[in-house]
Design a protein around this nucleic acid. Sequence first.
RNA 1: GGCCCCAUCGUCUAGUGGUUAGGACACCGGGUUUUCAUCCCGGCAACAGCGGUUCGAGCCCGCUUGGGGUCACCA
Length: 528
Amino acid sequence: MGTAKRWARGGGRRRSTRGQRLRVGAPLPGAGACCSAAVGKYLMVDIKTRFAPSPTGQLHVGSARTALFCHLLARKMGGMLLLRIEDTDRARHVEGAVERIVDDLKWLGIDWDEGAGVGGDKGPYVQSQRLGIYTKHVEKLLDAGLAYYAFETAEQLAGLRQTAEAEKRSFIYRRPDSLPTRGQAEAVKAEGRPAVVRFKTPGEDVAIHDEVYGVVTVPGDQQDDFIIMKADGWPTYHLANVVDDALMGVNFIVRGQEFLGQTWRHKLLRDAFGWPEPRYAHLPLIMDMKGRKLSKRDGDVDILSFRKAGYLPEAMINFIALLGWSPGNDRERFSLEELREAFDIDRLNKTNAKFDRDKLLAFNTAAIAEADEDRLLVAFEDYLSLNETPFPAGDTAMLRRLLQVNKGFRTFADIVSKSGSLFVADDAVEYNGKAVEKVLAKNDGDGWAVLAELRALLGACPWTGEALEKLLGEFCTGRGLGMGKVAQPLRVALTGGTISPAIGETLTLLGKDKTLSRIDRCLALART
RNA sequence: GGCCCCAUCGUCUAGUGGUUAGGACACCGGGUUUUCAUCCCGGCAACAGCGGUUCGAGCCCGCUUGGGGUCACCA
């Protein structure tokens, strides 16, 4: 009935229209629909989304985007976002990973209403603290005859799988003709042999209704009796995830597309427990530039790496928001606040996206240009706290000065490469061979000559920006030289290379003593 | 390999039967600038292919090709 109509669009392209928006307010089979609220002119059931990461390492850009979309959906619809930690694989658990994830989410500006870090009345929100709940639910299934014990070892299964592969068949676990009784299972466990619990899959086609992909049907003959409880007594992802979503009142699941082909398991499990279906929105995947799935193993695609590399969270957010979503027009610069307003689940697209670092860099450059100094100072200090740099981290006046003098920088790391040498010891300055050759030695040592002359003038000059600029300007006109012919030799002498802030700034930042001593040191180089 | 999903510039994307197929990044060229970066201007560049449906297809359907996901006692 209504259901059929609601999903009638099938796999076709969905675009936002008034008519479709109304669909949002249609009566939902969603769990935990305790109340409804009028938002704008649409009546809708309150939604509750969740972000459920596994604490196996860093939060990477793919997970961050999922969290962002969950957050945006909840905020836009006036719903709730819940954070749950899925750590049922105690072998892969990484110490400190939960704190890492929470910290990265906070840095990005993504907040949530319930769960890890903020509490709530449906907890605990860490799966390793909910074992009893899962056990109880597995028992229910066992008692109802909807699940059964199986005793194959992991090795035996691997063997069967290998055989199947050799015969070019896909391996699907075959349910034994006679299932063990609870007593037999206890006996096996008592012997120390492994026993897992498998779900008794009906074997009928299952249709999943997805907000992004439409109706996806998985043939019954492709379904296996998947494991819901491992031999170590812990539930598998499928069981724990479904149980928790239901018990915690989650009615809108947003997650990566890699789960789409497995959602039939979740639907079957919900059916078995008699729980209503939530709404699903699977997100297209984020790939690397070679088109391969972006994974945590890919190295620096985790949020912390970008933070350490000098990126602004607002740029990260803006960029990842556009991976799989677009507003429908030519606009692409958004603050988190603006995204919360503009986000529309109907505008999610289905095609995988490649993670283009060049574009991220461009967004970061723009975000930096738009940010005011106070904002930049906070971010700069955060950057400095995560990196070893020659800068005096506690000297905010100096940090502000660096921000001003380096205008146009693309990441905070640019400030280090452009101004860092001004803060190291004189003898730590390394001269770049090419720069020395091109700027100082070339043309019979014109550069050296300019430097020597400047050394004397500088020594007698009051050390203010104005006086120095004036001195250099007069020097240039007096010699008929362009500023480049004067500033560059100085740069090389002072920093070892050709890159530094405007020459007047470079001189005042360095100070008179260091300027003179570095020129002397450089001049000495000419005589060797 | 089975099953499922996807398909517009190199990349992110706009496009809901009639458009010179738009924007952004990258790239190329030019300009501003004492270096680098920033900034400004201009340019290059796409509907995977083949069949249908239609007066008319990037938009609808099918096939082919290509890409991806999934087939774990990981999530």
